[in-house]
Simulated scan of single mutants.
Amino acid sequence: MNKFQAFMIHKDEQGFRNAIETINIEQLPVGDVLVQVDYSSVNYKDGLANSPEGRIVSSYPFIPGIDLAGTVIESNHPRFDEGDAVLCTGYELGVSHFGGYSEFARVRGDWLVPLPKGLNFKEAMSIGTAGFTAALSVDRLILNGLSPDKGPVLVTGATGGVGSVAVCILAQLGFDVVASTGKLATQSEWLHQLGATSVVSRDEVLVPAKGVLAKERWAGVVDPVGGPQLTELLKSVQYGGGVALSGLAGGSKFDNTVYPFILRGVQLLGIDSVYCPMKHRQAVWSKLAEAWKPHKLLQAGITEISLHELSSVLELILQGDAVGRTVVKLR
C-alpha cells in the first residue's frame, strides 16, 4: 500500500505535462479517511484540469479526478469504518485536493457518501459527477412543477455525460424526451436506445426567434451546455417551465431580456453539484440506485479505461468528441 500509481499533472518551468507516477501514502494530502480507489470517472471539469488554460487547478504537482469510489482502509471519522464502501463527488476533490486518479486517496469523511445499495463501484462512477448533476437537474425541474403530462422536455448536449444520463432518467420516468446534439448523423440511434422520443440537431433547436419570445415548445430543459444558446432556449420554454442550467461547455455568457421571466414565469434554475448539501446529496444518490438508475446507459453507454489511457480521453472531452460516460479502473 505504501507505493502506488497515480496520474500526476505538473506545471513548472519545464511546461505543462502529465504522467503516471509511483508515489507513497505520505504524499497524499491531509484527510481523516483513506480510501482504496476501485473506480473514478471522466468529466468535463477533469478535462479542464488537464489543460494549462483550464483554470481548475491552482497548485502543482497535482492528482486530478473529481470522482472516486472504493473501500475505506483507515478512518478517523465517526461515520465510517474500515471496509465501508463509499463514493465521493464534488467538494474540493480533484480541484484543490488530490483527486480520484490514484490507487489510494485520503479525503475528508464529510465529503463521503456511503455507496447506496443497488450500485456497485463501477456503476456509481458510470454515473459520477455528470450523472449526479443530471439527476439534480431532473429533481429541480420536478420540484418546479414538471410532470410528463406538461409536454416535451429538451436535453441539450445529449451525447455528453450530463445529457445522456438525463435522457435516460427522464425516459424512465415517462417523459417525452427530445435530445439535442451536434452528432445527429452518428449518435441518433444510440440516443433513441437511451429513451429519447426524438433526436434533433442543435441548429434546429436554436433557430433565432424574430421577437422577444418564441413559440412555447419545452415544458422543461436540461442544459449542461450554457453559452449563447441559452438566449433562444429561454424564449421557447412553456409558461411556468424551467431551464436547469449546469454547465458552460458552450460558453460562460449569454444575452437575454426579461420577457421570458415576466411574461411566461420561466425559471432559470442553477444546478450546483459541488457543494450540494449532504442530506440532499444522499437522497439523490438513493434515487440513482433505485427508480432513477440509468439502466440503458449502464448497458450501452459506458467505456472503461485504465490510467494509461486517461490522457487521450481527457483531451477528447474538451474537444467535444466524448460520448456517454467513461470510467477509469484503478484496480
Rank of each mutant, 00 (worst) to 15 (best):
A166I: 11
E123H: 05
G128D: 06
S137C: 11
A134R: 15
L170I: 03
A171S: 14
F132Q: 08
A171N: 03
M125G: 01
R140G: 01
V165A: 06
G145V: 14
S164E: 07
D149V: 08
S137F: 11
G128T: 04
A171Q: 04
G163H: 07
K150V: 07
C168W: 06
L136R: 04
A158T: 04
D139S: 15
V138E: 09
S126L: 12
V138Y: 06
L143H: 07
F175M: 05
L141T: 00
I169G: 04
T133D: 00
G151H: 12
S137R: 01
G131D: 11
M125C: 06
L146R: 06
R140E: 06
F121V: 07
I127D: 00
C168S: 13
N144R: 08
S147Y: 08
Q172K: 10
L154C: 04
G160N: 10
A166D: 02
L154W: 09
C168A: 14
G174H: 12
A166G: 04
S126W: 06
A135K: 15
V165R: 03
A130T: 04
A166P: 08
A130M: 09
S126E: 07
V167M: 07
G161F: 12
T159R: 11
G131K: 12
N144I: 00
A158Y: 10
Q172F: 14
D149S: 10
V162M: 09
A135R: 03
G161I: 05
V165F: 04
S164R: 13
V165K: 00
V153H: 00
N144T: 01
L136G: 01
V153I: 14
Q172W: 09
V167S: 01
F132P: 00
C168D: 13
N120G: 05
T129A: 06
L146E: 06
I169F: 08
G161S: 08
A158S: 14
V162G: 05
T156I: 13
G160W: 14
I127A: 04
V162F: 11
V138F: 14
I142M: 12
S137L: 09
Q172A: 04
G161E: 09
A130W: 08
L170K: 07
I127G: 00
G151T: 14
P148M: 13
T129R: 03
V165S: 02
G161K: 15
T129L: 09
F175L: 04
L173D: 01
S147N: 13
M125N: 01
A166N: 09
V138T: 10
D139N: 14
P148N: 10
K122P: 02
G163T: 02
V153C: 02
A166H: 12
V153Y: 00
T159M: 03
T129S: 07
F132I: 05
